[in-house]
Write a protein that binds this DNA or RNA. Structure first.
Length: 233
DNA sequence: CGCCTTTGACCGGCGC
DNA sequence: GCGCCGGTCAAAGGCG
């Protein structure tokens, strides 16, 4: 896919700036229209990015886009959790919480569509719950997740992964797989599972940031991911 | 032989 | 304190 234009680096994808009232629900403030080299344009809705059909239909491109989004997150915000709200097959949105809430259970419920008000979930938690969350709060890597319509579980995001575990989680028919980046000194992990309601959808959750370029770069320095990463930083 | 997946065991957090 | 659950470990086996 040819790039029509490039992202203005000064836009600061995840800069916390003049958040419109209607977006102050935990979502990052995105520019209204994002154009990703080689991936095409993504219009922004109050809920996140609306992926063009060509992009939404391509799992690899979606994975690359998600990686790009995390790559462009300012350091101070990477300290927070960044999760993806799954509003639909073509919607990719990232959610910020004010604390590093390590509550996979919440995310999992989000993924299963059991909650419609994800923003309120994080912003309106009870004091008791917050206390418990803080108690279990640890220094964790930034993470985000997204879903993709795909026949294959592992999307080609340009990195090389090694599977280190598989688990059947409660109330799901499909096992969850755990992967680690094979690169030395890279502690990035990802989880892959199928959406309970729609097994055609793959839920991919990334944790951490790669300290290296995608493995494809070793063979081809002109890959989209390389361009994107170099572009943002 | 090296790298990978598989899979049961183990561990720690959490709710009751 | 106990049991459940998710996440990780590590041994074993497969594959190129």
């Amino acid at each position: 896919m040819a790039a029509t234009s490039q992202v203005n680096p000064n836009q600061g994808l995840f800069e916390e700036q003049e958040m419109p009232a209607h977006q102050q629900t935990g979502f990052f403030s995105f520019p209204p229209l994002m154009t990703f080299p080689q991936l095409g344009s993504c219009h922004q809705s109050p809920k996140g990015f609306i992926l063009p059909p060509s992009l939404a239909a391509d799992p690899s491109s979606t994975a690359n886009l998600a990686e790009t989004l995390l790559s462009s997150t300012p350091h101070k915000q990477r300290e927070d959790s960044t999760t993806c709200n799954l509003g639909g097959p073509n919607l990719l949105s990232l959610q910020r919480s004010s604390a590093n809430l390590w509550a996979w259970g919440d995310i999992n419920e989000c993924l299963r569509g059991k909650r419609s008000d994800i923003g309120d979930d994080h912003l309106g938690v009870s004091a008791v719950k917050m206390k418990k969350i803080k108690a279990r709060r640890k220094v964790r890597e930034p993470r985000f997740c997204f879903k993709t319509l795909s026949d294959v579980d592992v999307l080609d995001d340009g990195y090389k992964w090694r599977k280190y575990g598989q688990k059947v989680v409660k109330n799901t028919q499909h096992p969850r797989s755990y992967y680690r980046c094979t690169q030395d000194n890279c502690r990035v992990k990802k989880r892959v599972e199928r959406l309970a309601e729609d097994p055609r959808m793959v839920i991919t959750t990334y944790e951490g940031r790669h300290a290296h370029s995608p493995s494809h770069d070793l063979e081809d320095s002109q890959t989209p991911s390389s361009q994107l990463n170099n572009f943002f930083f």
